[in-house]
Design a protein around this nucleic acid. Structure first.
Lengths: 339, 339
DNA sequence: CTGAGGTACGGAACCGGTACAGCAGGAGGG
DNA sequence: CCCTCCTGCTGTACCGGTTCCGTACCTCAG
C-alpha cells in the first residue's frame, strides 16, 4: 500500500486532480461542499503533500541549512551550540520548517556543501556560524544568491546581514567592574584567535584597560577546551607578575581555571577573581559560584532564524542585534587582597 | 539567471535529455566521448541534480530525521546530545546524507512530525531517542513502515531495532567497586523515571546491591538539572542515615553534588564518594576530579546511524550493542572513613 | 429572450529528472 | 550477402503536484 496521491483522492471523490488541489490548498475554484468532501477523503486516507512534487513547482524547500565547521566528535565541548540550535528551532518548528545540520571539516567543504544544498533545492537559506576575520565563506555565499544570515560581528560579515551582540560593551562592563574593585593586573584567556568575535573581544579588552588606566593586559589564546584553559591559567599564575583577575572566553575554561587556582593553593576570590563568559549550569554548580557574563543564547539563535526567514521572504534585511551579555557578579569576584 | 537543468545541457551538447541523464549518472548508453563532453558542460555551467525531481521518481530523500522531545531551550543541559549528533554526523556526512533535526513538545507531536516527514518524502528513516517504558512512539512508527532505529534498551524498543549499551553491567561494575572499597550505604541520584534506561539502571542498582549483600539503596529521581541534583544530594546528606557513596545519572548533577558536599563541610572522598555517569570535560575540571562511567557517545550515535542506513537499505536489521560504559576511577572515590 | 458575468470544474502543460521501448547504423557470423 | 546482435542515442511516458486557460452551467440585468 503506497502513499495516496491527489489522483487517488480525485478518483474517489469523482472529480479532477485540479479540483482536489484547489480544495486542499483553500484556493477558490471549488464549492464549499465539494471542498469539504475532498478534505474528508484526504484526511481519511492520510494524504500528505509530496514535498518533492511541490518543490518541483518552484515552491520552497521549507528547510534551512546549518553547517558547522568543527570536528564532528568535539561539537559538545560547549553547551553554546545546543542552546543556539534550541533557539533556532523555537522559531522554525512552529512554522514546520526543518533544520538541516551537517558538520564539515573545512571552509571550502562548507562552501561546497551550501552550493550543493542550494543547487539541489534542499534548503531555502543558510546560517553562517563561527565567523572568521576575512571569512572566505562570506563572499562565496553572497555570490551564489543563497539567502544567508551570519552570526557574528558585522565587520566580519561583509555584505551578509549579521545578527550580533555587542561583545565590546560586555568586555567594557567587565573590565570597569574589576577595575572598580581595585584590580590592576587583569588577564584574559581567550578562544581561537581566528574567530572574529575573539578579535573584537581582544581589541575591546585592550581598549577598556587603557580607558581604565590599567596596564596592557596579558591575553592567552586557546582552543576553548578545559585542558588548554587549565594550562593557560597555570601559565598565568606561575608568572612573576601574576594577575589578580582572569576573564575566560567560555564557561568550561573558567571552571578548569578555578580548579587550577585551588590546586595552586590560591583562594578564590581572595587571591584571584574569575569571570566566565557565558553562564551555564556548571558555573553555578562549582564553589565558589562563578561570576559570569550571561546572555540569552536561545534568543540569539531565534533572532537569527527570524532574520533568515525574512531574508528568504525577499525582505530587505539589515544587521540586527541582541542585547549584549550582562555581567552577573557571583562569589568568584571580589577586591584583590592587596587592595 | 536560473539554475541549469539537464535540458539546458542537452541543448548545448546537441543531444537528448536522456543522454545527459545517462552520462551524468555513469550509466551505460552513451559513448565515453559524449559522456566526457556532457560532463564538461555540466561542470562548466555548475549543474546540480534537483533533489526534488529525483525524489519524485521514487529515489531517496538522502536525509534522516531526528526529533527531540524536550523543550527547545533546554537542549543544552547535557553535552550528551551534541556528542551523539556529532557521532551520527560522522557517518552521514561522508555519504552526503543530511540530518533533519526538530524539537517537539510531546510524543504525539513527535509521531505526527515523523508521519509528515515520511509522508512528504523528506526523510528515508528516523532515529528514536529518549525511549520511554511502553513508548507510544514505537508502535506508531512501526505501523507506518518508516525505517527506524531506537537508541535505548531493546525491551523498550519492541519490534524496532535498538542500538543500546548494557547499562546493567556498568551499574554492576560500579556497585561492586564501591562495595569492595567498603561502602555499604550507596545512594543513587537518577534521571527521569519514565525513561527506559532509568528503569534499567534502577533495577540493576537494586539487584547489584542485593548481590553484594548491601541494604536496599535509596534512589532519588530528578530531571537531570544541576538544581535538582543539588537538592537530591542535600536531602540524602542530611538524612539520619546518610550514604557514604552517591552515584549520579549524569555529569552535571555529580558536579552539583560535589558542591553541596563541600557546602556541608564533607570532604570528598573521605566522607563521601561520588561517581558520575558520563564523563565530560567538567568531571575533570573540578577538584577532586570525579570518578566517572565513561563511554564513547560518538560511537553510539555512529552505530545508530549505520544501523539506520542499513534498515533504509532494506537490510534485515537486529539489535546491536556498543560497549557498556566503563568505570574510570578518579579522585572522588575511596574507602569510607568508617571502614 | 438574450447577453454579460460569475461559479465550478476539467484538460493540458509544466517543473526536472528517470525508466523503458524503439530505432538507426556498424560489426560479426554463417 | 543476409540476418542478428550490439552500441549509442532518441522519443515518450511518468513521478505528484500546480497553474493557466477553457468551458458548461447558472443567475441576473436589460
Amino acid at each position: 500500500m503506497k502513499r495516496p496521491t491527489i489522483a487517488d483522492i480525485a478518483r474517489q471523490a469523482g472529480v479532477s486532480k485540479v479540483a482536489v488541489s484547489y480544495a486542499l490548498n483553500d484556493q477558490p475554484g471549488v464549492s464549499a461542499q465539494t471542498r469539504a468532501r475532498i478534505k474528508a477523503i484526504a484526511a481519511e486516507v492520510g494524504w500528505r503533500p509530496s514535498s518533492a512534487a511541490r518543490a518541483l513547482n518552484g515552491a520552497q524547500a521549507r528547510a534551512v541549512g546549518l553547517a558547522v565547521c568543527r570536528p564532528a566528535r568535539t561539537l559538545s565541548v560547549e553547551p553554546f551550540f545546543m542552546e543556539l540550535i534550541g533557539g533556532i528551532e523555537s522559531e522554525l518548528a512552529p512554522r514546520s520548517i526543518a533544520l538541516m545540520l551537517q558538520t564539515v571539516t573545512s571552509h571550502d567543504d562548507e562552501i561546497e556543501l551550501y552550493r550543493r544544498w542550494w543547487g539541489e533545492g534542499r534548503v531555502d537559506g543558510a546560517l553562517l556560524v563561527d565567523l572568521h576575520d576575512d571569512d572566505v565563506r562570506v563572499a562565496a555565499l553572497a555570490a551564489m544568491d543563497l539567502p544567508v544570515v551570519a552570526l557574528g560581528p558585522p565587520q566580519a560579515a561583509g555584505d551578509v546581514p549579521a545578527v550580533w551582540s555587542d561583545d565590546g560593551a560586555s568586555v567594557h562592563e567587565t573590565v570597569a567592574y574589576l577595575a572598580a574593585l581595585g584590580h590592576r593586573a587583569i588577564a584574559r584567556v581567550a578562544g581561537l584567535p581566528q574567530l572574529a568575535h575573539t578579535t573584537v573581544r581582544d581589541a575591546a579588552f585592550e581598549e577598556s584597560c587603557r580607558a581604565a588606566g590599567l596596564p596592557a593586559p596579558t591575553v592567552v589564546h586557546t582552543d576553548y577546551s578545559g585542558e588548554e584553559g587549565a594550562r593557560a591559567t597555570r601559565r598565568l599564575l606561575i608568572a612573576p607578575e601574576r594577575p589578580t583577575a582572569i576573564v575566560y572566553d567560555n564557561d568550561i575554561m573558567a571552571v578548569a581555571g578555578l580548579s587550577v587556582a585551588q590546586e595552586l593553593n590560591l583562594e578564590v576570590p581572595r587571591d584571584l577573581s574569575l569571570v566566565a563568559w557565558d553562564d551555564s549550569p556548571f558555573t553555578q554548580a562549582v564553589r565558589p559560584q562563578l561570576t559570569a557574563l550571561t546572555r540569552d543564547i536561545g534568543e540569539y539563535g531565534a533572532l537569527a532564524a527570524r532574520t533568515l526567514l525574512a531574508a528568504v521572504g525577499k525582505e530587505d534585511v539589515r544587521h540586527s542585534q541582541v542585547p549584549a551579555a550582562r555581567l552577573l557578579p557571583r562569589a568568584s569576584t571580589s577586591p584583590p587582597r592587596t587592595a
